[in-house]
Nucleic acid binder design. Sequence first.
DNA 1: TACTTTTGTGGGAACGCTCCCACGACACTA
DNA 2: TAGTGTCGTGGGAGCGTTCCCACAAAAGTA
Lengths: 351, 351
Amino acid sequence: MNLEEVARLAGVSRSTVSRVVNDDRRVSDTVRSRVQDIIRQHDYHPNAAARSLASRRTRILGLLIPEAVSAVFSDPFFPRLIQGAVEACNSADYNLLMLMDSGNESDVSDRLYRRVIRGHHLDGMLIVSSVVDDPMIKQLLASDFPFVLVGRHPRYQEISFVDVDNRAAAQSLVAHLLGHGYEQIAMIGGMRNMIATIDRYGGYVTALQEAGLMPDPQLIAYGDFDEQGGYRAMQQLLPYQPRAVFVASDMMAFGALQALRDAGIQVPEEIAVVGFDGVAQGAVSQPPLSTISQPISDLGREAIRVLLDAIERPDRSPVHRFLPTQLTIRRSCGCPETSGPHPLGGDRRAP
Amino acid sequence: MNLEEVARLAGVSRSTVSRVVNDDRRVSDTVRSRVQDIIRQHDYHPNAAARSLASRRTRILGLLIPEAVSAVFSDPFFPRLIQGAVEACNSADYNLLMLMDSGNESDVSDRLYRRVIRGHHLDGMLIVSSVVDDPMIKQLLASDFPFVLVGRHPRYQEISFVDVDNRAAAQSLVAHLLGHGYEQIAMIGGMRNMIATIDRYGGYVTALQEAGLMPDPQLIAYGDFDEQGGYRAMQQLLPYQPRAVFVASDMMAFGALQALRDAGIQVPEEIAVVGFDGVAQGAVSQPPLSTISQPISDLGREAIRVLLDAIERPDRSPVHRFLPTQLTIRRSCGCPETSGPHPLGGDRRAP
DNA sequence: TACTTTTGTGGGAACGCTCCCACGACACTA
DNA sequence: TAGTGTCGTGGGAGCGTTCCCACAAAAGTA
């Protein structure tokens, strides 16, 4: 069953059927409903490949998880991002293709760029959590292929992105720790070349400086955004006896909490710990984790919207959109247990 | 740049270039290398849509997350499954499309089935964690569209699947609890209509029966595969004072552990708790969680392989493949803390 | 009335491939 | 020597759309 056949059955031309299928208003009501009947009766559906070939649009968007972050892909951040992105795609009648590096062959940019992009497989692409020196970005910029970053890139002002203000959020969280009176505040960062890490570090430094404190290089350690990294980084920090630790992701914070438990150190009585992300498990950790809640699925949804807009109007100026974060205060920072129902029984998120 | 143009530049015909691109061996070495030079020089890449249209193959596979499970999509199970599936796709030079229900419009089967499948968008599909009464399954069976389940379906022997033996794994884990001498063993199940839940329940019952015990209906509660569900289910079980609880997923087990902490009950001294999945956080929970480790990314990888095989040879009989699980014993079941380095510092997985 | 414009419809020409058949050149067999 | 394969190559015919232009009929304008 194809256009031509529907046309024959409805007694009209191929063009008219095409117009009906594509909601072109220049079809009389009589003809339109006659064609629609035939389409429904025979369960006709236009062939995607033929459409793409003729229209030079695939209605497929890519979601690229770069090699550097695919190792921490099981972090709850990614499923929520994917969910938001898929939702936005669904409502715009687009599809989402997963692009990630296998690891065994590190030619992402090759396989990906060459086959998928140059082969016109995609109309556009989302790139997640990019690193500062991603070679892909340069290649894409040169090819004027539409793409949007989830997470800003400091070097290229001409690239659209959707992000949270990592710097401001980190600053407010560290300021909260300072408000408790802590002075020796350490930080555990994620991968050094990731922009989110750099921005969160910037916020940490700013908060200290505004309190008249100098950041101490010994109080900075790096994990790799996973629990094990957080655990080891915390172990490195222990000799310097910080009074509080700002950890740049919740998953690392859980590792840090474990390291402190293993060392017999009380949280928050001896060391306060705060995270970043606002993943669900933070409500059940021991103690419950104070953190920055990011609107993760909104990030994905919004990024798709910006991308679709860039595809529609290629000449528009780049969009730089920051979504709001939320300070989620629980017990790990030293705040008292709030009263009310338990988070797993009900709701207890701070405003 | 297209086939025709490459052909012109290389001084051969379109057909010959096509043969070179598709690794057809019936091309002389001289011509082959001449064509390859031109292709490289001009960075030619075949157009995906044109290929699909002519060959009736898209080289795209779908990964369907049904509505029922998309709510627990942030469970670490899914990222690992996706990772395995994408890896297998990459090495076979296929792409993976994410298909999930938005929730706001519950016409998955409509949007999905009609547009994506009937529109020949996909060569095949993976369906994850299906429920017993999934209407999609019936529809697909009737259409002889290639698909493979991740997680068996008890009703349809003619559908290929890749799964773990949930029943046997659950049975061995509950048998381990019985080996501790516990008799009042409760269970927290996932969504009732999910096949994994049913199978794990079956294993639980069998283990009890083999020990000469009758399962007590009061000792069964259901969560929804997330932490909150586990928390509430545990609360329901508390009045009946079980000595041990088999929880059908790790995430629910973390919720159950929290409920027990909130109730001031010691794990494993007063109640033993075991999970199912083997997610990384189990090593850092308080206490570390004994569980069944599933080879999750292998499940995704293997399912893609089976699917590709089904696409190649549509007449082959259905494949029913079970991957092995592993009993991961930590402290929550009552076993003594094993010596050796901490899991976050190194490795401590039981054989 | 004669003209322009709008509206609805039809058909040709791509879009860039794959697949099938044809055909000459050469090697092998009888 | 003639017949039969195999090999390498070329070209035509789709694949199922969209897009553009043509064109008749109806509606609006002078």
